[in-house]
């Protein structure tokens, strides 16, 4: 018994060490490619790694996360706070590629329930993705738990923090951090304003384990409702002019 326990301890310690070094468990789980070479190349495993938790902030985080969950092949659990005032809307989710026949929504009353539900979902190998919308930042310990649960279950965890900016990013054990902001359509003549076309996001990969330390990657992508297709609009590499370009994009 004691020997078993010490074995388990050794196992855990090794795993924590691996985590701290920023490795995954040797590509045990496949990744979801974006099918955009510029983005996939910046990510370890050539896509969004499954069996890991990813955090998404920004003004367009909801749409981006719906799209990611829609790309996961299998049932999706989406945990929301019960009193959010704005319910997920089926046709809108379907427009981002998340069909509701494989969506389960858990309405959690408290933040503790939310974390518990996410952890349960991530640990279940039957789920392809688990989305959580906590009303405050996930603490370091909690994020570590979620990451471990995702490694056990193999699904993709997505922590959705709407409205949160770069400023309030607390330390976290998530695998990667994204910021997705909406991008206005600019430079179109007034006559084109009667149609607002596809959805554009500016994606910032703020942090990613094993993705080349400290690199700040940014892209502008466009989602087309009709074809359910994500395409690259421009590739913003972090260079001195990037800030200016961002300003220009933000109008």
């Amino acid at each position: 018994m004691l020997k078993q326990r010490s074995n388990a301890l050794i196992d855990l310690r090794a795993r924590i060490a691996r985590l701290e070094r920023g490795e995954t468990d040797g590509g045990r789980y496949p990744s979801m490619p974006f099918d955009i070479p510029a983005i996939d190349a910046a990510l370890p495993g050539g896509g969004l790694v499954s069996g890991a938790v990813h955090e998404v902030t920004g003004s367009a985080a909801g749409g981006f996360v719906s799209m990611l969950a829609g790309r996961a092949d299998g049932p999706v659990l989406w945990c929301v706070m019960a009193r959010s005032g704005a319910d997920l809307y089926g046709p809108g989710l379907a427009a981002f590629g998340l069909d509701t026949d494989r969506l389960v929504i858990a309405r959690c009353a408290t933040a503790a329930d939310m974390l518990w539900a996410m952890e349960e979902g991530l640990r279940d190998p039957g789920l392809a993705a688990v989305v959580g919308e906590p009303d405050r930042a996930v603490a370091l310990t909690a994020s570590r738990r979620l990451q471990l649960a995702a490694e056990t279950g193999g699904g993709t965890g997505l922590v959705l923090r709407r409205g949160a900016g770069k400023g309030d990013l607390s330390p976290s054990a998530v695998f990667s951090r994204w910021q997705a902001d909406s991008v206005p359509l600019l430079g179109l003549p007034d006559t084109a304003r009667s149609s607002i076309g596809g959805t554009r996001w500016r994606l910032d990969l703020l942090r990613c384990r094993g993705g080349g330390g400290g690199m700040n990657k940014a892209w502008v992508v466009e989602w087309c409702d009709a074809t359910r297709d994500l395409s690259l609009v421009s590739d913003i590499v972090d260079r001195p002019g990037a800030a200016r370009e961002r300003q220009r994009l933000a109008g």
Binding site: G74, V104, R107, E120, G121
Partner: peptide
């Protein structure tokens, strides 16, 4: 795609309430 998640739904339902684990 057809993986069975009803045990998970049961666990969620028993803690959160079955009326709070829903589909659209």
């Amino acid at each position: 795609k057809d993986s069975n998640i009803s045990p998970l739904i049961d666990r969620l339902g028993n803690r959160l309430g079955f009326d709070r684990v829903v589909g659209l």
